[in-house]
Design a protein around this nucleic acid. Structure first.
Lengths: 212, 212
DNA sequence: GTCTATACCCCGATAGAC
DNA sequence: GTCTATCGGGGTATAGAC
C-alpha cells in the first residue's frame, strides 16, 4: 500500500488528538495506517519532524477559524467575531488548541523551526490588528494595541485552559455563555463606576459556522 | 541508608521540577537518592502515588503564598496582594505552578483523589472571598463573586501560561510590570469611556517577600 | 530496608531482504 | 516502498536473598 505524506500526516493529527504528545509514537501511527513502523521513515525523517508538521496543521486550522472573522462589516463586529471564532476553535479542537501552547522543548527543536514561529507570529499579529482598528474606530480606549491584545489573549486563553482541565465544573453550553460574559467584563472593567457604556455589537448575534 | 517518606517526597519534588511529569521516573528518583528503584516501593505504592503527593506539595506551597495576602489591612490591599503573591508563586516555582493545572488523566486517578480536589477548591474559594469583600467594600461593582473571581483567575493564569511558554518575548522584570499593568486593565476595562476611576492601592507598593 | 535479578512492557531508529 | 529482524534504550513493578 503506497502512502503519501498527506495521508500519514492526516492520520498523525488524529493520533495526536487522541493520545497527545506523549502518547504519540511511530509504532502506534504505523498500526493505525496498517503498516509497520519502519515504513514511516521513508516519508518522515523522525518522530520529531512528524510532530512539527502536526503542530503546523494545528496553526493552519486555527488561522482558518480566525480569518473568518474578517468577514465582519466593521471593526467592532470583526473583533467580536474573532472572539467567537477563537472560542469555536478551542472547543471544536481542544487537543489542537493545546498543541498551540505546547512548550518548544517538549517537541525538540521547535524553537528553531521557522515555519511554526511564523505561524505563531501571524496569529498574534491578527489580534493586534483587530485591536488597533477598534482603537482607531473609537471603540477601545487609546493604548498600545499589542499590550491590549495580549490582555485579551491572556484572558481568553486562561479561561479555555482552565475549562479544558475541568476546573470550572460547567457544561459546554454554560461555558460558552460564561466565556462571552467574561470577555464583556474585560471590556467594561470590574471596578466600581457610576455609569458604564456597552459595546455596540452583541456577541449573541454572532454564531460562527463550523469549519471543515 | 534509611529513608523517610518526607525525604523521598522532597527529592521527588525536585525531580518533578527539573524533569516534569513525563521525565519523572522511579529509576531517576532512586538514583538521585542514592538507592535502587525497588527500595522506593517500600515507602510509596506506585509512581502515581508519589506524583499525587508532589501535586499536594505544589498546592500547599501555593496556598502558603496566597494566604500571606491576608495580612493586607483592607479588602483593596488584600486583593492586590493576592495578585502579587499569585505572580510571585508562578515565577518562583514555574514547574510547580504548571503542576496545579496538569490534566487529571495524565497522572492517573487524580480525579478520584479527594485530597487534591479539596486543595484546589480551597484555592478557588480564596479568590471568591477576596472578590466578595471588595464588592462589599464598594471597590468592585456588584455581581456574582464567583464569576468575577473566575475572570480574574483566567486572566492571570492565561498571562502566566503564555509567558511561561516564551510567547511574550519579555524578560522577567518586564513581564512583572506587564502583569500588573494588564491586571489594572481588567479592573478599569478597555472600552472607550470618558472618565475612569483608578483603584486606590498601587500594586507597586506591595512587594511580596520570598516564601521559604 | 535495601539489594540483585528479572519479567514484561513501550519506544526510536536502522540494516538488509524482497 | 514495505517488510522482518534487531539494536539499545527507557520504563513500572515484583520476587526473593541478605
Amino acid at each position: 500500500m503506497k502512502m503519501r505524506r498527506t495521508e500519514i500526516l492526516e492520520s498523525a493529527c488524529e493520533l495526536y488528538v487522541q493520545d497527545g504528545l506523549d502518547g504519540f509514537s511511530m509504532r502506534k501511527l504505523a498500526k493505525k495506517l496498517g503498516v509497520t513502523a519502519p515504513a514511516l521513515y521513508r516519508h518522515f525523517e523522525s518522530r520529531e519532524e512528524l510532530i512539527i508538521e502536526v503542530l503546523g496543521e494545528a496553526y493552519r486550522l486555527f488561522a482558518e477559524y480566525l480569518y473568518r472573522a474578517l468577514k465582519g462589516v466593521d471593526a467592532a463586529q470583526r473583533i467580536q467575531m474573532a472572539r467567537a471564532e477563537y472560542l469555536e476553535f478551542a472547543l471544536s479542537h481542544p487537543r489542537m488548541y493545546e498543541a498551540l501552547y505546547v512548550s518548544p522543548e517538549l517537541v525538540g527543536v521547535v524553537a528553531e523551526c521557522d515555519e511554526i514561529n511564523q505561524l505563531g507570529c501571524a496569529v498574534g499579529q491578527f489580534w493586534v490588528d483587530r485591536v488597533r482598528e477598534c482603537i482607531d474606530a473609537g471603540i477601545l480606549r487609546p493604548g498600545d494595541p499589542r499590550d491590549i491584545a495580549t490582555t485579551m489573549w491572556a484572558h481568553s486563553h486562561g479561561l479555555l485552559s482552565i475549562w479544558n482541565r475541568g476546573l470550572l465544573g460547567q457544561g459546554e453550553a454554560e461555558f460558552r455563555r460564561f466565556f462571552h460574559q467574561s470577555c464583556d467584563r474585560l471590556f467594561t472593567g470590574i471596578e466600581s463606576l457610576d455609569a458604564v457604556t456597552a459595546i455596540s455589537v452583541d456577541w449573541r448575534q454572532i454564531v460562527p459556522d463550523p469549519v471543515e
